[in-house]
Amino acid sequence: MPMITLRALEPDDLEFLYALENDRDVWGVSDTLAPVSRHALREYLLHATEDFHVVRQLRLVITAEIGSPAVGVIDLFDYDPLHQRAGVGITILANERRHGYARQALDLLQKYAREVLRLHQLYATVGGDNKGSMKLFRAAGFRRVGTRQAWLRTAAGWQDAVEWQCLLRFPATTSK
């Protein structure tokens, strides 16, 4: 299995993002209902490298090797500076799944979130039928902390959302 890298978005990622964002198979997990235009993605790429603490989100490109084509993205979103937490989302291209890229990317992101961004915790919401993602988050040290009943509307009907949480460091102890 090749070692993956995480890198910032580049203007050259336009066609990759266009294919990824317009893949109807992942719309259900990204709360997307309509195609995304190249124009909208060009505008997004112009601002994608703004400071995480200002825009409260970060998208990194997953590559199998330095200089190789992108295989997916991993996102931090919904950053809460007071509570030092953020949500995590991962999307791997359909033909690149089941190679361990998501697990390696999640490991790297957890380390970055803890050591560089100094976050206290990460969380993820996973569709109840997405066994692969649940296995991924469990293997990465996330704990299943709850289920929201009939939370996600899909083409097949309503689906539960499973909530996952990972504490990146232990809370400080207070002396009595």
Rank of each mutant, 00 (worst) to 15 (best):
L122F: 04
V54N: 01
L17N: 11
G127W: 00
L76F: 15
A172I: 14
F170V: 10
A8H: 12
G132K: 06
A19P: 00
Y112T: 06
G100R: 15
W151T: 04
N95F: 14
T32L: 12
L46V: 07
R56Y: 03
E65G: 11
V54W: 00
T49V: 00
Y44Q: 04
H99G: 06
R98I: 01
V54S: 13
R42H: 08
Q165G: 00
A64E: 15
V162P: 05
L119S: 02
E15F: 02
R148E: 02
A86W: 09
E15G: 01
T125P: 00
T5C: 08
V116N: 12
Y112D: 04
L108A: 15
C166R: 15
G87C: 09
L82N: 13
V73W: 04
H83W: 14
H53L: 07
H53D: 13
L58Q: 06
A139L: 11
I4T: 03
R169V: 13
A86D: 03
F137H: 12
L152V: 10
G127V: 05
L41I: 06
D12N: 05
T174W: 13
V36A: 11
L119M: 02
E163I: 08
I92E: 10
A105K: 15
L82G: 14
G132F: 00
A140K: 06
T63H: 07
R103I: 05
L122I: 02
L6W: 08
L119G: 01
L45H: 05
V126W: 09
K135M: 09
G87W: 10
I74T: 08
I4A: 03
A113S: 15
A94G: 07
Y101Q: 15
V36L: 00
V36R: 01
H99W: 12
E163Y: 04
R7M: 01
A8P: 01
G157L: 08
Y79R: 13
R118K: 11
W158M: 03
F142Q: 10
H47S: 11
L6Q: 05
D160I: 01
V26F: 07
P69Y: 09
G100A: 13
G89S: 09
I92K: 14
Q159R: 11
K135Y: 01
E115H: 11
F137D: 01
A105H: 13
N95G: 07
Q149D: 03
N95L: 12
A102R: 15
I62N: 02
G100V: 12
A150C: 02
A124L: 05
L117D: 04
A105C: 14
Y112G: 01
A140D: 11
G28H: 03
A150V: 04
R103G: 15
R114W: 06
N130V: 03
Y112S: 10
G127T: 04
H83P: 00
E43N: 02
F170H: 13
Q121R: 15
M3V: 07
A150I: 01
M3R: 08
R24C: 02
R144T: 09
D31P: 00
A150H: 04
G100K: 13
S175Q: 14
A19C: 12
T63E: 07
L122G: 10
I62T: 03
Q84A: 04
Y18Q: 04
S30Q: 09
D23H: 06
Y79S: 11
W151Q: 05
D78L: 12
L76G: 12
Q104N: 14
N130H: 12
F137V: 09
Q104G: 12
